[in-house]
């Protein structure tokens, strides 16, 4: 399916583009962190330490405006209390309002974001491509019906959909044992399971599949009129043969490019769903941002660190998407050859 020519294009585009290398580097780091979070994180991300709440990142100071009333010389006085940094590297990126280590939380949060991004996109691709190719290839009434339905889906605001589904299913989530912890490689104090937030994945897939359906339909529409499709049918190729051997392979490039962009969009959507409390996951960038929001004026790092992580992931993935688009687009339909 991937021809040597495609590989060549990918390679030459990669060697040309600094941004593509940057995108790959960013994503590789995030992936690495997500995979080995239990080994890399300095603390259990869920461990609370109420004596050490709202500690700023290493080297930063924080003023905490605590209005306390004290009796001084028989008078009630309002005092402002200043909390200054701990200079140890115990919590390099500080702690949150419950004293949990922000760095560890952000590292584990990457898992949720990537899982939702990958699974959500995968489901959206499968659903969207199936619907889109069916609509585009068969055309006519089937096309009308499917794409109308897709438009209706698109008209639903994602949050309304999320609320509806959560109302229906609850915050269904799957807990998978973390192999690193279970096998004893990582410390047993780490969370023993990876949470797969099912409802969130379903929501982001349902919100996003329509884009894939549209792109796939457009591709199928143009591919089905190619003479090689007529040729395959005249040889006796079934619809399934034509779709799998011709329509799908020739539609994949724009779908792949769209998928990378959509992973980024889905990570953002997951964050906002978690931020609003719709996610079952208690360990996610969006959840942490929501937690940190109310301390933004005093303890900015609680929300900012996971926020920066989201930015990095989205930028990295988009850079990769650009690379794929640039490498796969020119002359992909074989028009570039000598004739």
């Amino acid at each position: 399916m991937i021809s040597p020519r495609t590989l060549r294009n990918l390679r030459s585009e990669l060697s040309r583009s600094l941004l593509a290398k940057l995108g790959i580097a960013i994503l590789a780091v995030i992936l690495f962190i997500a995979l080995f979070a239990p080994l890399l994180a300095p603390h259990d991300p869920t461990e609370q330490d109420l004596d050490n709440t709202n500690i700023p990142p290493l080297g930063f100071t924080a003023t905490e405006n605590q209005t306390t009333s004290e009796m001084v010389d028989g008078e009630v006085k309002i005092v402002e209390k200043q909390v200054v940094v701990n200079t140890t590297a115990e919590h390099p990126l500080g702690t949150d309002s419950l004293g949990r280590d922000v760095l560890s939380r952000t590292m584990f949060g990457a898992r949720t974001s990537l899982l939702v991004g990958l699974f959500g996109t995968a489901i959206a691709v499968v659903l969207g491509v199936t619907v889109g190719i069916t609509a585009g290839y068969y055309g006519g009434r089937i096309d009308d019906a499917l794409m109308r339905f897709a438009d209706v889906m698109l008209a639903f605001p994602s949050l309304v959909l999320a609320i509806a589904l959560i109302g229906l299913w609850g915050q269904a989530s799957l807990r998978l044992p973390d192999p690193l912890v279970a096998s004893g490689i990582a410390s047993q104090t780490m969370p023993e399971s990876i949470v797969l937030p099912g409802t969130v994945i379903a929501v982001v897939a349902l919100v996003n599949w329509v884009w894939f359906a549209r792109v796939a339909r457009g591709e199928a529409l143009s591919v089905r009129d190619q003479e090689y499709v007529k040729a395959a049918r005249s040889m006796g190729g079934s619809d399934l043969h034509v779709i799998l051997k011709h329509v799908l392979p020739n539609s994949l490039t724009p779908i792949l490019v769209l998928a990378t962009i959509q992973i980024a969009a889905i990570i953002l959507l997951e964050s906002s769903l978690s931020f609003l409390g719709f996610s079952g996951a208690q360990l996610s960038w969006g959840f942490d941002i929501a937690q940190g929001r109310q301390y933004l004026s005093s303890s900015w790092w609680i929300a900012t660190v996971p926020g920066l992580a989201i930015v990095a992931a989205v930028v990295g993935i988009n850079l990769i998407g650009d690379w794929l688009r640039d490498a796969l687009d020119p002359g992909i339909e074989g028009q570039g050859g000598a004739s």
Binding site: A231, K245, P249, N250
Partner: peptide, 9 residues
Amino acid sequence: DPFSSLDPR
């Protein structure tokens, strides 16, 4: 059509 009659992939 020598172009579109053969699947480019």
